[in-house]
Simulated assay, not measured.
Amino acid sequence: MAFPIVRHRRLRQTASIRGLVRETVLTVDDFIQPIFVVPGNGIKNEITSMPGVYQFSLDTLEQEIKEIAELGISAVLLFGIPESKDSVGSGAYAEDGIVQQATRKIKSLYPDLLVVADTCLCEFTDHGHCGMVHTYERDGHVCGDVLNDESLELLVRTAVSQAEAGADIIAPSNMMDGYVAAIRAGLDEAGFSQVPIMAYSVKYASAFYGPFREAADSAPQFGDRKTYQMDPANVREALREAESDVLEGADMLMVKPALAFLDVLRVVRDQFDLPLVAYNVSGEYSLVKAAAMQGWINERAIVTEMLLGMKRAGADIIITYFAKDAARWLREGK
C-alpha cells in the first residue's frame, strides 16, 4: 500500500514521537576527549588553529581532568609534547616522559577515568616522522626513508612504558606494518596481557590533520607520511589493513579521519565485529569552529549532526575535540 494509506509523516509529528522511534542515539559514553600535555608549570596555551583546545602542563591539567570527569566523559586520549626531541623519539618511552607523568597524575586523581595512550613517535622525534628514519641528501635536499621493522622495537618499548605508567588502553597510531602483533607480544611479555589495543587500523594521509600538527608540534621536517599512511582514494585497502590488525590481536579498530570517510566506517563495520572507533580529527573540528565564530552555522546543531552521522555509519566510540561540548549539550537536553 502507498499514500494516502501510508503517511510517513505520522511518526514525525511531535518531539516525543520522534524520540520514541529514533534509530541512532548519542550518549556521553560514546566520547573520548583528546588532551595535549607539555612540560612546565602554569601552562594553558590555547592552540591558535583549534579555538577552545589547549596544551596543559601537569598542574593545570588537574582542573581540565576534573571538568571532564564531572561531565561524565569516561576516557581521555593523551598526546605529549616533550621538552626535547631526538632522532629515535626517546621521550616516548622514557619512564619520566610527559605522557607517563600525565598518566600517573590522572590515575591518582581519578582512578576510574580511562587513560588511552597514543603510541607513536612523531611528537618525540626531531624529524617528525612516526618511526626511525634513514636520512640522505638528494639534489641538495634532505630526504629519508621511514624504517618499518626497526621502528617496531621502539613502539613496543613505548607501549610497555605507557602501560607501566597506568594507561588503560594502548592506541598505536604509527601505521607501521606488523605494529599490532609486535605491541601485543611486548605487552604480554611484560605482564600486561589484559591491556587492550585500540588500533589506528585505517589511518589516511589526510589534509585534515593540519591543526593537530600545531597542537602536537609534530609536522614532518622533510617529506610527508604518504609512504605509511593510506591513500584517501582507497577503500578496499582499508579492509586489508583492518583484517591484518584483527589477525594480529587488536581489540578495537579505528577509522581516521571520520567525516570524509563515513563510507569507510560503514564497510569496516559491515566486515568486522570488533568495537569501531571514529576519530573526529582536528581539521574537522577547526572547520566547524571557524564557521561558527563567523556566525555562519549553528555549532551545536552541526556538531550533533556530524556525531550522529559517525554513529549511524557504524562507530561505537567517537574521539572528538567536541566531547566536552557534546556532553554539556546532552545534559542540557535531558
Rank of each mutant, 00 (worst) to 15 (best):
V25K: 02
V25D: 02
L26F: 05
T27S: 12
V28R: 04
D29F: 06
D29H: 02
D29P: 04
D30Q: 02
D30S: 06
D30G: 10
F31L: 01
I32T: 03
Q33E: 10
Q33I: 05
Q33Y: 05
Q33K: 15
P34Y: 02
P34K: 10
I35S: 01
F36G: 03
V37W: 07
V37P: 05
V38W: 02
G40W: 02
G40D: 00
G40F: 00
N41T: 12
N41D: 12
N41M: 01
G42T: 01
G42I: 01
K44S: 01
N45G: 08
N45Q: 06
N45M: 00
I47M: 13
T48Q: 09
T48N: 14
S49M: 12
S49H: 11
M50F: 11
P51W: 14
G52H: 15
G52C: 10
G52V: 13
V53E: 11
V53I: 13
Y54W: 15
Y54A: 11
Y54L: 11
Q55K: 15
Q55T: 08
Q55A: 15
F56I: 10
S57I: 14
S57A: 09
L58F: 03
L58E: 09
D59S: 05
D59A: 05
T60K: 14
L61Y: 08
L61F: 12
E62A: 09
E62L: 10
Q63W: 15
Q63K: 15
Q63A: 14
E64F: 12
E64P: 07
K66L: 13
K66H: 15
K66C: 11
K66D: 14
E67A: 07
E67N: 13
I68G: 04
I68Q: 08
I68P: 00
A69T: 15
A69K: 08
E70W: 10
E70G: 07
L71V: 02
L71Q: 04
G72N: 00
G72A: 03
G72D: 03
G72K: 01
G72R: 00
S74M: 14
V76H: 12
V76L: 07
V76F: 11
L77N: 09
L77P: 06
L78E: 03
L78R: 02
L78D: 04
F79E: 04
G80F: 00
G80P: 07
I81P: 08
P82R: 07
E83T: 12
K85W: 03
K85C: 05
K85N: 04
D86V: 09
S87A: 15
S87F: 11
V88Q: 10
V88Y: 11
S90K: 07
S90Q: 06
S90L: 00
G91E: 09
A92W: 08
Y93W: 11
Y93I: 06
Y93E: 00
